[in-house]
């Protein structure tokens, strides 16, 4: 009957389970980890978009007087072998990582929501076809395909966004489909349908809001995954290509000489790790804030 610590079915009840709006913000801010993640993210955003205006050197310029110079007042993160300013290159890479990460996350999560909800709600043929495509994409070696497409994508880096998104929605789509199917069976959806509420209205009024938590959490975690994927591709020369700069290319260039010239590798690597960490912290915090039964929360 009464499970200790669980909500009690008759008495005046605990806080409502699903949270939105101000309550969500409050809960999120109650978690040190999420606050840390948000602060980090804000800092990185400022650095990425205000940084270029503060630095003296542009990422395209070359300082022939300073080759492989350690960090100094002139070159904050030092210079590369060809005399380019590491700070400018890194900050440009960071900008790109942020933009790519966010847009890939939005695009892939949106696609996942669409495919998953339609497949789950419609069932039948639509479901079979959509899930077939999902299975196929899961079997297709994504990195390989992206690498093969690399020369085409590298020439115009915004093309990386749809390409990455195309390989990141499948797992979420399956989860959304599963959740949609179980929501469809839930009594409140059944009740709505039996009241004569139209299918479109059921999707928008009942299913989408209740899938919200899942989508928000997954979307956030996709940002981190997309950032890693982009930098990984660029690291191996399949993504953003020199002379343009990404965190991946800067790291690839600096990795070989990491012992002797640590600034070539260290700053970009640290920023990359911080960025992914920040996003993951926020995502994990959101998970706890949105779904108090999901483990880490107070029980």
């Amino acid at each position: 009957m009464t499970v200790p610590g669980a909500s009690d079915p008759s008495g005046a009840p605990p806080e409502a389970m699903p949270v939105r709006g101000p309550a969500l913000t409050r809960r999120l801010l109650a978690q040190p980890r999420a606050v840390l993640g948000l602060a980090l993210l804000t800092g990185l955003f400022l650095l990425a978009f205000a940084g270029p205006h503060l630095a003296r050197w542009d990422w395209q310029q070359t300082d022939f007087t300073a080759l492989r110079e350690p960090p100094s007042a002139e070159h904050w993160f030092g210079t590369t072998a060809s005399g380019r300013d590491v700070f400018a290159l890194t900050v440009r890479g960071l900008q790109k990582s942020l933009l790519i990460g966010l847009s890939v996350a939005v695009l892939s999560t949106g696609l996942a929501a669409l495919v998953g909800m339609v497949a789950g709600y419609a069932g039948g043929w639509a479901d079979r076809v959509l899930m077939g495509v999902t299975d196929l994409l899961l079997v297709l070696p994504a990195f390989l395909v992206l690498a093969v497409l690399g020369p085409t994508l590298g020439s115009a880096w915004p093309l990386l966004v749809p390409a990455l998104a195309a390989f990141m929605w499948m797992v979420t789509a399956r989860m959304v489909r599963q959740a949609t199917i179980s929501l469809k069976e839930r009594e409140f959806v059944l009740a709505a349908r039996c009241m004569g509420v139209s299918p479109a209205r059921v999707l928008v009024r009942h299913l989408l809001p209740n899938l919200g938590s899942l989508l928000i959490i997954d979307g956030t975690l996709h940002v981190g995954a997309a950032v890693i994927a982009e930098s990984g591709l660029s690291y191996f020369g399949f993504g953003v290509r020199p002379p343009d700069s990404s965190l991946g290319t800067v790291i690839a260039e600096g990795a070989a000489a990491a012992t002797t010239f640590p600034w070539l590798f260290g700053f970009a690597a640290a920023l990359l790790v911080l960025l992914v960490l920040a996003v993951n912290l926020v995502g994990d915090g959101l998970r706890d804030a949105l779904d108090p039964t999901g483990g880490g929360g107070v029980r």
Partner: peptide
């Protein structure tokens, strides 16, 4: 685990090399 998960393999590998050196 958070720290490791947030570190791409190519950064992790270089860091380990640095440590080993």
């Amino acid at each position: 685990s958070f720290a490791v998960l947030s570190t791409p393999v190519f950064v992790l590998a270089v860091l380990l090399q640095l440590g080993a050196e």
